[in-house]
Amino acid sequence: MKKAATIRDVAARAGVSVSVVSRVLNGTGPVAAPKRAQVLDAIEALAYRPRAAARQLSQGHSDTVGLLLADLTNPFFARLADRVVADARARDLQILLMTTQEDPHLEAQALDTLLDRSVGGMIGTPTGHNVERWEKLAALDIPAVFVDRTVAELDQVDVVSIENVQSAATATRHLLDRGHTRVGIVSGPLDTSTGVERVRGYEQALRERGVARDERLVRPAPFRGDRGADVVAEMLALDEPPTGLVVANTAQVRVVLKMLAQARIAIPGDLSLVVFDDNPWTDLIRPPLTAVRQPIDMLALHSVELVHARMRQKLPPAPRRIRVPAEFLERSSTTHL
């Protein structure tokens, strides 16, 4: 494997000192135009990693934003990407879209690629891993905004998400108030912020109504694959199965519905159901589904506004946390017990 170029390699090729290269990259001091050009040429020739920063310095700024989303087979992320592109275009920003497929290794590769492409900012849905690579963006003065999820170790990054705890509590409370004391939840993985926060909201509602938590009814599932169907089948096979269910993992709604139809589980007669998110078809199937509608347009708008302002250095350095309320839509998939 070819060894990555170092700052010393750049200095040697450009015929300048390391301190001159550092000043060009970081803007920490004056550099004569001919020497500056030599350094930028050397950085390009050697594919030195901070070349994204160097190009931005040579051009003033980059108008390209990297958009790194989890999974475009998930309708939530497909619609989010569409809105981000539209909002970015309105601000004369270009979007470079990549996906992680919920794989930390693909996320690491994508982040490296986006750095090589000289992005001026990033909007991303993190897997929860690759903390060092996300931190590298900050070291290169490339602003990042997390949308939908966050990472605890990266509390310096701006975040735009829905009110996950409140939304899951509202969905669970809706079922409890209809007499369902056996309420299950299918969450995202518990190493993601959305998975943790939605389970927290579910537990909050149980405590408020004095209902004991049953570990067997709290079932995380990956965002990809069909595991959601399996965990719901396992819950329904219990001696005391749930009579109410919150599918708080948007990627698993379709497979759960397919399994329930195949098992001839009547909704809401056998099982009252609340789902995240409100897909275009949720009010068209029979019965129409009670849903937590995530405000995708607002998530996209806030994300683009934040990264644009950061790229133009128009915000104070303190990180922003924007949590947008979701809308609860009561339809016909839930009933009183």
Rank of each mutant, 00 (worst) to 15 (best):
R209F: 03
G179L: 10
E153M: 04
A229V: 05
D230K: 11
G201R: 00
V196I: 15
T127A: 06
L236F: 10
T125K: 00
D226T: 12
N130C: 11
V196T: 14
E234P: 01
E234K: 05
G228H: 09
V147D: 10
H180S: 06
V231I: 07
L217I: 07
R198C: 05
R200Q: 14
V145C: 11
A171E: 01
P222I: 04
R209S: 04
V159I: 14
D230R: 15
Q204C: 04
D148V: 13
R173G: 14
A168T: 03
L217V: 10
V145Y: 06
D191M: 04
T194C: 02
R227N: 12
T181I: 03
L137H: 09
L176S: 05
V131L: 11
L236M: 15
E215Q: 11
L140D: 13
D148S: 13
R216N: 13
T172Y: 10
V196L: 15
G195L: 05
T150W: 13
T170D: 09
R219G: 02
V196E: 10
V183N: 03
G128K: 09
L176E: 06
E135G: 11
V145N: 10
Q156W: 07
Q204W: 00
R216C: 00
D214I: 00
T172F: 09
A144I: 09
E197A: 15
P126E: 08
D158R: 08
G128M: 07
G225L: 11
R216M: 03
A212W: 04
P220D: 04
E163K: 09
S193Q: 05
A139R: 15
E135W: 00
D214H: 12
R207L: 08
S193P: 06
K136D: 13
V160Y: 04
V232C: 06
A221C: 08
E163H: 14
F146M: 12
E132S: 14
V218Q: 02
G124H: 01
R173P: 00
D191A: 09
A168H: 00
H174Y: 13
Q156S: 14
G124Y: 01
A229G: 12
L236N: 07
D214Q: 13
A237Q: 12
V151Q: 15
V131K: 10
L176R: 03
P220W: 08
R198I: 02
D230S: 13
V186G: 00
